[in-house]
Computed example of a mutant assay.
Amino acid sequence: MKKIIILSALAAFLTGCDNQETPQAYTPEMASFSNEFDFDPLRGPVKDFSQTLMNEKGEVVKRVAGSVSSEGCFDTLEFHDIEANTGATLILDANYYLDALSREKRIKLQGKCQLAELPAAAVTYDTDDNGFVVKARGKDVTVEYHYDAEGYPTDQTTTAKASTLAVTTKTGADKKKKLDYTAVSTLNGKPVAKTVQDCDYDAHFNPVSCRLNVTDDSVTPPATTHYVIKNTIDYY
């Protein structure tokens, strides 16, 4: 009996240690690409993933999928916007991402695998000392990106001529649940939308599934649309 009690206490101690495990930070590439290509960032040794956004009817609205090298570079990225009937598949080739079908050079890279330029759109990217993209510059548009201490994307400000769209993201107190957040969007200082998300997580503190509620404050009365996000993630 004493041995059983000791083993039970040890198991409880180890479980407690596991629960206190510190989540891995987000890499500059993962955080920056998630900003630019509109998907939830992931942490840890991700090998490949998919994120599928579905509306209240269970219909697929958007889907993002990718494969990541053991060094943390995106080998492939695939995007499908069903409502807009658009999509693309990008593959890494030296210092560029190519369109998988046309072989056109879509994205130029800097360093090992960070965003540098969108040649066709004349957009260039600035990075900070830690390698995170902090600004995108186009002919008529500038976008500024901010991150928290763990590399999670937070505030984003887009300036186009006389218009400024600002998105402020606030996560909860639990650092293991970064994808539980509230984001408020304002246009020239006037609230236009509010997004609230909460998720279920895996052992790497990445989301397995999420509930996403988007409220359009630009209409009267405000209208809320409900979505579900289903994720698949494989690790090294």
Rank of each mutant, 00 (worst) to 15 (best):
A88K: 09
K47S: 13
L101Q: 14
K62I: 01
N95H: 11
K57H: 13
Q110I: 10
D129T: 13
K105N: 10
V46D: 00
V64P: 02
F49L: 08
L115S: 06
T52N: 10
D126Q: 09
G87E: 06
K62A: 03
T76E: 02
E78Y: 14
A84I: 07
E78K: 15
K62W: 00
T86L: 14
Y97A: 03
L115F: 00
S67D: 11
M54T: 15
G44R: 01
Q114H: 11
C73Y: 08
K57F: 11
R103H: 15
R106T: 05
K62D: 02
V123G: 00
T89V: 14
N95I: 02
L53E: 09
L77V: 12
F79R: 13
L53T: 09
D126S: 09
A100W: 08
K62R: 10
E71S: 15
L77A: 09
A120F: 09
T52D: 04
S70N: 12
K57P: 05
E83D: 15
A100N: 13
G87S: 04
T86S: 14
V68C: 00
V68L: 05
Y125S: 01
D81H: 11
Q114R: 11
Q51L: 06
E59I: 07
C73M: 12
Q114S: 15
G72Q: 09
T89E: 07
L53Q: 08
A84P: 07
A84V: 10
L118G: 00
S102N: 10
E56M: 12
I91Q: 07
D81G: 08
L118E: 04
L77I: 15
L53V: 13
E83Q: 15
T127G: 01
C113S: 00
A84N: 15
R63E: 12
D93P: 04
F49R: 06
N130W: 07
N55Y: 08
S50E: 03
R106N: 12
L77K: 06
L92H: 08
R103P: 06
L115R: 02
V61L: 00
C73L: 12
A121S: 12
V61R: 01
T127H: 08
S50K: 04
Q51P: 06
T86G: 12
N85Y: 14
E78R: 15
I82G: 01
T52G: 06
D128P: 06
K112C: 05
E78P: 07
D48Q: 10
V61C: 05
S70W: 08
L109Y: 05
S50F: 04
Y96G: 06
A65W: 00
